[in-house]
């Protein structure tokens, strides 16, 4: 179920677009709904977003499966999105990702046993001068080293 609060937020986005173009808000709607649902989407939520924005459900499903940032399986409380593209790679992202996998005993694409984190390898996040880097929540963490990473992980609750 989409909460009233979330609906309000979605409706705020709807006001940005011309009348009858409420489907422009679908990406944000899915983001809002996903955040509210612990980081992933379900078929029911997609249906509800479709109903709320008066869109064909399959069109919402298309959007929900096209963009990288939507999850269709439960995820950890925090998602660590680690860039492994060229600039980060040249600065050792692969090694750091392995380090992370070992430390958390979790493979990329999976959720840690305690459900606290998921690790994802992602393409360029547009912070190449700060590589290696990762994103957790809204936050970018740049110029990472093993010890910096330890620190960040220790602070995740």
């Amino acid at each position: 179920m989409i909460s009233d609060q979330a609906k309000k937020e979605i409706d705020f986005w709807v006001t940005k677009y011309p009348e009858g173009r409420q489907s422009s808000a679908v990406m944000q709607a899915l983001t809002i709904v996903q955040n509210e649902n612990g980081g992933s989407l379900t078929g029911e939520l997609i249906q509800e977003v479709a109903d709320h924005l008066q869109m064909p459900t399959i069109s919402v499903q298309e959007v929900a499966t096209f963009y990288e940032n939507y999850n269709h399986k439960p995820v950890g409380k925090h998602i660590i999105r680690f860039c492994h593209n060229i600039s980060c790679m040249l600065n050792g992202s692969d090694e750091l990702i392995s380090y992370l996998e070992e430390k958390l005993e979790v493979k990329t694409g999976e959720v840690s046993k305690d459900g606290l984190v998921s690790v994802k390898k992602v393409e360029c996040l547009g912070a190449c001068v700060g590589g290696p880097m990762c994103q957790i929540g809204d936050q970018y963490h740049e110029h990472l080293t093993p010890s910096k990473l330890d620190n960040i992980l220790d602070n995740l609750k």
Binding site: P56, I58, S59, Q61, E62, T65, F66
Partner: peptide, 8 residues
């Protein structure tokens, strides 16, 4: 609108 292209 029933059919669509999902994924990418």
């Amino acid at each position: 609108v029933e059919m669509g292209g999902t994924g990418r």
